[in-house]
Design a protein around this nucleic acid. Structure first.
Lengths: 350, 350
DNA sequence: TTGTACGCGTTATCAC
DNA sequence: GTGATAACGCGTACAA
């Protein structure tokens, strides 16, 4: 396996031309032989010669040059709020793995949920000639940053869908997830169930609240506006604040459906400070099943989302859209699963 | 702000040629005017005309074409084992944030610690003309995948350093971290301290074991080979397995330094199964301070690494190297910090 | 100071 | 079935 070397020992990058020369054919022919799409156009024997030559030289096509010609970059922009939020790594992993199969490379940026930054990132990705975008940001807007709604670039939405179904999207069924949580609590005997909702400008915060209210009604329980509090962010401190507010009202709550796991942890904080036993005196359900939620004290009952699959399906939709830009935008909705652990128990009637 | 539109409403991509035509100059001149480096070569007036034209058309240079010419992509490859390992997101975040400031884009790939895959990814990145690489894989090899050691591409190592200091690197001081853990246990009164080491082919596993043995000796404790067990992976089940093995030996251990937090959790598993109280009967220290380690039962005493800073410093080193390829490779070592929580206590002498 | 011409590595469109 | 050639968008010697 000889490879061309320079004096300093570094491998020169071997180009199509080198392969063609070694195979004794024209570069154009080599290109056709190497490309699966066009291999049929070339003689079987010569094709094999070219392939062998490419193998021997360790030839790797240059995607840059290819992109210049095809006006495709084989690159996909991925907009996520924050990689250190444990929600997103599995989603990103799903995206990457699926994309990689198709020889696409993801360009990942963190927007920190800042619309301005999202806009800037979006432009930057466009400048980099991305073939499409996957946005895992969850603001309840048009899917694209303000002012860019009309841009004709394949975009797949994650965690969010458009009312008019104008863009393909992959979401988990938040209504169903919350319903499972509520039904679980109801089956344990709870009737005074509260919801600490996430921010209503995020689709997740909004839908889970909707789902909560619907589930309460369909359980035959009289909805009580006092029992639904809304946070300004999906964070622990907000969960603690709202939980304290709720407990101050002495409304007889026996169970809480938190907007997500972090807010559930905030409830734990409040319980400890007040000396309330969980699940003895009050039950809590989280949302997301973040890593190691089963190791908390008590182990957290929560709703698990198929994060990895959400990512891989999103990549899949984008790839389909790239193949056939005129295809109908598909809306995928995946089922969540309730993980019953130690933070929920029958209510203790006082 | 008019932009050329096609019938279907999509913006055409505007090229240098369009700008030149509108400004009434030759594309070459437009190129010089647009490029900050060469703007001095062009008449002030014409430069302004070109800039105005570019602005009006919303011109964005095509990095693909530029890269083909300059063989620079303003792109950096980032090799990490697995994004869903909670260790890496903050590191990646640090890398991204710093790189973004310098208008570089990271290309992130997961190697799953598979040398073959790492090699393929590395080649793919090279094909994409990355200007440099950051590898956060921790195998104790040459820094580059086997067979690629001689490649002349700026590379910064994370979590690993070369004996000869041939590549810039950023690491946390594993020896110091383990020493802090051991000293903490010794100051609590422990003398029979065990170490469940990580895989020895990973630099982290290796160095922590070294650090443990050194710390034990400098604490004036007679080293006991019986008390050092080595795992095949940094995972919970391995921690459990080794912990059971250790306890079976009835060696009078009162404290364990686990190779990382997951292995510490494995110890928890073993304790629960055997009805052993932690920290009452035996203490455990983890490593990494993974997210929410303080929420475990008991809250885990562990060694915190400056993950974000590790990432940003690595990016910094790479950027410096890109600016001045002949600069001496810098080795950065950052200090860890012991987080004392609830899994450690004085030994109960039996 | 500006225009010309060429090349980067690849693919597409012609002839042959 | 294969070779020749142009073109993708840009940067840069070189000439003017």
């Amino acid at each position: 396996m000889r490879e061309p070397m320079t004096k300093n020992g570094t491998r020169e990058r071997v180009t199509l031309k080198d392969v063609a020369r070694l195979a004794g054919v024209h570069p154009g022919t080599a290109s056709r032989a190497l490309n699966v799409e066009t291999r049929a156009l070339v003689n079987e024997d010569t094709a094999q010669r070219v392939l062998a030559a490419a193998e021997e030289l360790g030839y790797r096509p240059n995607p840059i040059a290819r992109g210049l010609k095809t006006s495709r970059s084989y690159t996909v922009g991925v907009l996520i709020p924050d990689l250190t939020n444990p929600l997103f790594p599995p989603i990103v992993r799903g995206i990457q793995d699926r994309l990689e199969e198709a020889a696409y490379t993801p360009l990942i940026v963190n927007t920190d949920n800042d619309p301005d930054r999202e806009r800037a990132d979006f432009e930057a990705m466009r400048a980099r000639q991305v073939d499409g975008m996957i946005t895992a940001t969850a603001r309840r807007d048009h899917g694209l940053p303000p002012g860019l709604e009309g841009v004709s670039l394949p975009v797949v939405l994650v965690n969010r869908r458009l009312e008019d179904g104008a863009r393909p999207s992959v979401v988990a069924d938040d209504r169903m997830g919350v319903r499972q949580a509520v039904q679980h609590l109801v089956s344990l005997g709870h009737r005074r169930i509260a919801h600490l909702a996430g921010p209503q400008e995020l689709s997740t915060g909004y839908l889970r609240r909707q789902g909560f209210e619907a589930a309460i009604r369909s359980a035959g329980i009289q909805p009580d506006p006092e029992l639904v509090l809304t946070s300004s962010a999906f964070i622990e401190s907000e969960g603690e604040r709202l939980c304290n507010e709720l407990l101050d009202r002495e409304s007889g709550v026996t169970a809480i459906v938190a907007g997500n796991d972090l807010m559930a942890l905030g409830c734990y904080d409040a319980f400890i400070a007040r000396g309330i036993a969980c699940p003895g005196e009050i039950s809590v359900v989280g949302y997301n099943d973040m890593p190691f939620a089963g190791w908390f004290d008590p182990p957290l009952t929560t709703v698990r989302l198929p994060h990895y699959e959400i990512g891989s399906r999103a990549a899949e939709l984008l790839l389909e859209h790239l193949r056939d830009p005129d295809a109908e935008p598909v809306q995928v909705m995946l089922d969540p699963e309730l993980m019953i652990r130690g933070s929920t128990a029958p209510p203790r009637f006082r």
